[in-house]
Design a binder for these strands. Structure first.
Lengths: 107, 107
DNA sequence: TCGATGCTTCGATCGTTGTCGATGTAATCA
DNA sequence: TGATTACATCGACAACGATCGAAGCATCGA
């Protein structure tokens, strides 16, 4: 087993030190809300891989301010990125970050 | 792709319906705390796959009541199971439940 | 039966968070 | 410039959650 690359801490390998645990918990905490999970799944299912905020508000049944709040949390967790183009801000999924979290809980 | 087995909803497949999102969020929410992640990693690293509460209190630097609280949350999320044997309660990891959560965030 | 040990539950505190409505800001269009 | 649209931020509120100390169970040994 390649011990060399310590890119991503894993819950299932050696006991997690407190710092790694805090960092990982930040990521999983962002996944711990139904609205945010649905945002991610909508982004993953979008044909172009991008969705603007206005197209999230209706389906998710939350106000625009609330959706913006959740997108900020997802962004701070590194799970999504926003790109302003004209009046719209297009959000897309960060597959690498998601893969890193997945890697943290696989044996 | 085998559409047949719909055992575990995935964030990255079709858009999540609200009910599935709530259920998945419950699991990820349990992972969204540093103390709980360290509990899981200690369980995974334990030679016998089991640890009693008294052996978690010291390393995690929390009171026994707090550790018990976190174990209850992990248990309700299906991530750990407790087994009373004599004076001790031995906790172990539910690898299947963890794998299901992992499966929910893989493409 | 009585104490000691391991764990759970309870009550209280205090910070966090999901939500809304309202306001602010940026970009576009007339 | 002014109006409109898209999004972010703010203030407030209620609900939740992490934590502790203390009290309550359960089990074992003497």
């Amino acid at each position: 087993m390649a011990e060399a690359l310590e890119c991503c801490p894993s819950v299932l390998a050696a006991p997690l030190d407190p710092g790694e645990a805090v960092e990982l918990a930040r990521g999983f905490h962002a996944l711990g809300d139904p609205v945010r999970l649905r945002v991610l799944s909508m982004l993953a299912a979008a044909p172009t891989g991008e969705i603007c905020v206005c197209d999230l508000v209706g389906p998710l049944g939350r106000t625009q301010g609330t959706i913006s709040h959740h997108l900020r949390i997802l962004g701070e967790a590194g799970l999504v990125h926003g790109d302003r183009r004209g009046k719209w801000v297009w959000y897309s999924l960060d597959h690498d970050r998601l893969a890193a979290l997945k890697g943290a809980i696989e044996g």
